[in-house]
């Protein structure tokens, strides 16, 4: 096993685990968005890694660029919703979100 490939795959897995762990353990809306971002870092790494392995680096870079644009928009929308929720609830605690049940 090539050591760099192994470390890249491991780093990607660890970033995904860190993101998912944060997602289920935190109560803070903003930190949930940060958790999603951490997981997306792993995906970016995997895409470029894929390009480096199959030699199609040009294509993988166009993927990464498009993905970054979308990632930013999702982050802005998520932050916008979190800020609006803060204005309604007075805090960013996910335990306050109990209006929907059934």
């Amino acid at each position: 096993m090539n050591i760099v490939s192994a470390i890249i795959l491991t780093a990607a897995l660890l970033m995904i685990i860190a993101g998912m762990f944060c997602l289920v353990r935190t109560y803070n809306l903003i930190r949930i968005i940060i958790a999603i971002e951490i997981a997306m870092k792993a995906i970016t790494l995997l895409l470029v890694f894929a390009g480096a392995v199959n030699g199609n680096m040009a294509l993988s870079q166009t993927f990464v660029i498009t993905m970054i644009v979308i990632e930013v928009i999702v982050a802005v929308v998520a932050a916008g919703i979190a800020i609006s929720l803060y204005h309604k609830n007075g805090n960013v605690d996910i335990r306050e979100l109990t209006n929907l049940k059934g």
Partner: peptide
């Protein structure tokens, strides 16, 4: 309030799915 809450839950699940 309800709409924002539903939107945020959808966003989080959808972001996990997209990842």
């Amino acid at each position: 309030k309800r709409g924002l809450e539903g939107a945020f839950k959808y966003l989080v699940m959808s972001a996990i799915a997209s990842a």
